[in-house]
Amino acid sequence: MELKEFLKLIASEYGPGGYEENVVKIIQENISKYSDEVKTDNSGNLIAFKKGNGKGKLLLEAHVDEIGLVVSKIVNEDYVRIHMVGGVDYKILPGQRLKIFGRNGKVYRGVVGMLAPHLQKSSDRGKVIDFDELFVDVSMNDEKPELGSMAVLDAPVVELGETLLTGKALDNRSSCAVIFEVFKTLSKIKHDADIYALFSVKEETGGVGATVASFSIEPDIAIILDVTHADVNGSMEPEIKLDGGPALGIGPTVNREVFETLKKAAEENNVKYQIEPLPGRSGTDADSIQLVKKGIKTGLVSIPLRYMHTPAEIVSIEDLKEAVRLLTAYIIKF
């Protein structure tokens, strides 16, 4: 499957923290033919293995989970209340349609309700709606979702012009798609290092999956793939541009040599790249992977993305392709 098609497929599937099986299954089915071994671990992580000449162990990691919602209370036949799984900005919720995944396997519709402006008190207009006061209308379903059902915003990925894609969960299915494409490429070339691809669970809720899987894989070097904020008009935030190529993280949570090697690999192969300063923790799985056991050397490669954690996330397929070229070059160099 082509990179773009694969991304559309996995990003449109649902998989909030702890409930990633469907996405994991699709990746597993597709990556198997390019891997020597594929398995899931005790925590639900998917690990694909591609043998090299045993010269070192390289881990490519991307979290597979997305932010989501959970039905936290049944109010009555028509309404439920919700809680977030990961950092959802609830300002974007009113008026959204939800796909609710029942604990019995059925899929339901939900609409996040809001009082029409006509009926609002004038003093309430212009105020941010309190999350505690949000409700979801489930009246349209014949059967109703149960307490504890997970939900995601119904925003399948669509194309926006020639190169851009928009939708939910591009954070971090974009990186999953990049790793998938790297494995495809690896099936055609020789490489020395043993390559592990880790599609980890529960990142948005604390990086659990990456920590425990890295413990069992124990790689020499781990390259973490995630997304980063693009085109932010701030005064101190890093300047990362959509279509500027993958961003290479630099800072405490990244090993300096790994950073330099990645940068060199990009330069030698005319891969477009940008530098992302990380003055502290990176907010990615790199933070926890670096501290596993006696320490793991980490590199961080991020896909520029606009409007993170909304159903209107935007990435450029060109940035993904450059990231694939970068990682392939890095692996050959390894």
Binding site: S235, M236, E237, P238, E239, G251, P277, L278, P279, G280
Partner: peptide, 19 residues
């Protein structure tokens, strides 16, 4: 200390604290 996060058009630097 600090890290340089941005080099602005006017040649001045934006910094972010480390710690």
């Amino acid at each position: 200390g600090f890290m340089v996060t941005r080099i602005n058009e006017d040649g001045k630097l934006s910094i972010h604290p480390v710690g």
